[in-house]
């Protein structure tokens, strides 16, 4: 595969990278990414038009229910394998400041697949994601968002018992006079648009790809 791609145009290489990500071919992605480095192809473009494009196609397949969580996770593994190879070769000039999202599962819950999917999709959409993990106390969302200068705070839960902790994050921001500095988005099984409005969050999405659209829209407003 490597030899073949050496004779291909950069555009073909990007396409192959994208195809290998959608095709869940982690080894293939790694080989192609190394080929891109050997040929001196612009790493940023290879990431953007190859890896990110592949992950975004995987996201579409997820939305149309051709892919499910297992497929999406393996695509993400392939994307990250490629990123590991390509990121060190990004030329400084071609990196633009990425908007930051602080994400985590609120305290009292350890279900993190939904959060991980959103994180992957945000990563692939060019956001810098600060992942606080699971079982995160409300105050930590606030502290980390301030420390990292984030635009967006993304809160996830699968358990109704932890929904109050989401409201608590909004309250803490308000009490600290920080509410206007951040956009707060919420998601997870028991969450609804109505709940999001009631606690004063800025948005809700029922799915991971939808969450990325929402964050893009809100981060645009915040910028």
């Amino acid at each position: 595969m490597t030899n073949q791609t050496l004779s291909d145009s950069p555009a073909d290489l990007y396409q192959s990278l994208s195809d290998a990500v959608v095709g869940m071919d982690e080894d293939g992605v790694r080989a192609l990414a190394n080929a891109a480095v050997e040929r001196g192809v612009d790493a940023y473009t290879a990431i953007d038009r190859g890896l990110v494009d592949g992950m975004s196609r995987a996201g579409v397949l997820f939305e149309t229910e051709e892919y499910f969580i297992p497929e999406l996770l393996i695509c993400a593994d392939a994307m990250y394998a490629g990123l590991d190879v390509l990121r060190p070769h990004i030329k400084r000039a071609s990196t633009r400041a990425r908007q930051r999202v602080v994400i985590g599962v609120v305290e009292g819950d350890t279900h993190d697949i939904g959060k991980n999917l959103v994180k992957i999709m945000l990563d692939a959409s060019g956001f810098e994601v600060i992942d606080l993990g699971r079982d995160v106390p409300p105050q930590r969302f606030v502290d980390e968002a301030v420390a990292h200068g984030a635009e967006v705070i993304a809160l996830s839960t699968l358990m109704t018992t932890t929904m109050d902790a989401m409201a608590e994050v909004v309250t803490l921001l308000r009490d600290a006079g920080l509410r206007d500095r951040f956009r707060v988005v919420v998601g997870g099984g028991p969450i609804s648009q109505k709940f999001s409005e009631r606690i004063g969050a800025d948005g809700y999405s029922p799915s991971a790809p939808g969450a990325v659209k929402l964050v893009k829209q809100l981060a645009g407003e915040a910028a």
Binding site: T160, M163, P190, I191, S192, F195, R198
Partner: peptide, 8 residues
């Protein structure tokens, strides 16, 4: 719906 209707 357990959360949206029954709880909330």
């Amino acid at each position: 719906p357990p959360s949206e209707v029954m709880l909330q």
